[in-house]
Design a binder for these strands. Structure first.
Lengths: 253, 253
DNA sequence: ACTTGAAGCTGCCGCTGCGGCAGCTTCTAC
DNA sequence: GTAGAAGCTGCCGCAGCGGCAGCTTCAAGT
């Protein structure tokens, strides 16, 4: 089944102009071009277009999108990745909305009883959730520890890497169970797990308290990590972060 | 307290270059310019910047943002509006993620048992949640009267059309506020708004009671309208419909 | 067979929202 | 007194389309 350009435009919500543009830059050539020069699209193209639009909605540039679609081995895998990133982006909007809520409440209070705005004392609070508009960062790699991690994995066999990933996943699931069971982040069972993690981390490389707290922050702030946690259980990223921060306060002080 | 440009950049996550740009185009002049030409920002500017970034995250153009901030009477009111829109955008991402999930499931099924993709039968399904990338877009297409409307708009300038769309959006947001405030659909404040709408409708063309009820029904039954309402607040479509039906029963009988 | 309105096509120009310089001026801070 | 960080003001450029103009093609009615 082949759809003409206007039909695809209607279905997808983009303009025909845009579709021609995507053809022009080689991002989405039509399945077939009629002898009259008209463009006709088929199912594959629609699926590709979906991916393009999803990535575009995440703020990825067209050239980057082309690269991603280009060296995409398994499209199912790719779709799953996009899904994770979408969830992360949704969570970011959530936190943005929460930030705005806080500002509203703050304004209401200061208007009511004439006190000055308190969030202004920590102006960073005004912008929570806005900062990592950049998704590319999370597509590419992690910050800070990226170097160390890469050096560490470079010396490992694929099997070892896989095993490590499974272990981390298992640990996350156990944490999710603690969360579901209602244990506060600073309670014993959770803190015990966090301590295990800290010991493991120490075997790879020594981290300062600041570094450790930075890692804690990335649990919610790094889109990729956050998505990985949220995919297991909602609120898990924040839970892990809170647990790590409590651990740092209690035992690394 | 006055912050220099780099400090504001750090807190908000935008670059100093961007802040200079915003000054240049008059969108966000600093509170004060030192005798050396350096820019210094205060609390008011930070609050403004927050609003700018929120609106930007919603895809609003800078000129439009300037207009909004310009004729903003009550900033608290404005913030509440932004919050509503943020939540709407988050819901959109949610539905986008759901769409991607469906595609994944569909691909898995067709890969597993060799059946063809079913969602392709209704290719629109592939793009749910993508369409209203622009918030106004979601209000562009009203069906049924689309004919009448189009005939009416044919005689209008683009600026007039745009203004009309903004007005509809504003009206929907106000309705959402009534809903959020807990007013029943058949209570006075809501019915008053519906009456206004009815009068406006009458100016365009006269509708019979049956037609009016048909329009009410399409609020929830027409996918596009429904989506437009739900994008603003969950339950808004049903609320609007109920309000219109109550109005018809009480005053058009 | 002929018109006619809708839908296509190909350029080309223009806009927005910055990023990235270059080239120069301040400011601390040792 | 000089180095290094932080500012400033232009100016150029790029991505991602929107909006034409000018021409062709197609399906449908008469």
């Amino acid at each position: 089944m082949a759809w003409p350009i206007a039909e695809v435009a209607r279905m997808s919500g983009v303009t025909a102009r845009t579709l021609r543009h995507y053809d022009e830059i080689g991002l989405l050539p039509p399945a077939r071009i009629g002898s009259n020069g008209h463009r006709y699209y088929e199912e594959r193209q629609l699926l590709q277009l979906q991916q393009i639009l999803v990535l575009r909605a995440l703020g990825v540039g067209l050239s980057e999108i082309a690269r991603i679609l280009g060296d995409q081995v398994d499209e199912l895998e790719a779709l799953r990745g996009h899904h994770l990133r979408l969830v992360a982006e949704r969570n970011r909007l959530d936190s943005l909305a929460a930030t705005v809520s806080r500002t509203i409440a703050d304004l209401e209070r200061s208007r009511r009883d004439g006190t000055p705005m308190t969030s202004i004392n920590r102006p960073e609070n005004l912008f929570e959730g806005i900062q990592p508009a950049d998704i590319d960062e999370s597509l590419r790699d992690f910050p800070e520890q990226a170097e160390a991690a890469r050096r560490a994995t470079a010396a490992m066999t694929p099997a070892e890497i896989e095993a490590g990933q499974r272990e981390r996943t298992a640990r996350m699931v156990r944490l999710a169970e603690l969360l579901a069971a209602g244990h506060p982040a600073d309670a014993e069972p959770t803190q015990h797990m966090i301590d295990e993690e800290y010991q493991l981390l120490g075997e790879i490389r020594t981290v300062s308290v600041e570094e450790y707290l930075a890692i804690a922050r990335s649990c919610t702030e790094n889109a990729q990590w956050n998505a990985a946690y949220e995919a297991i259980a909602p609120g898990l990223a924040a839970y892990q972060r809170a647990a790590m921060e409590a651990y740092a306060a209690a035992r690394l002080a």
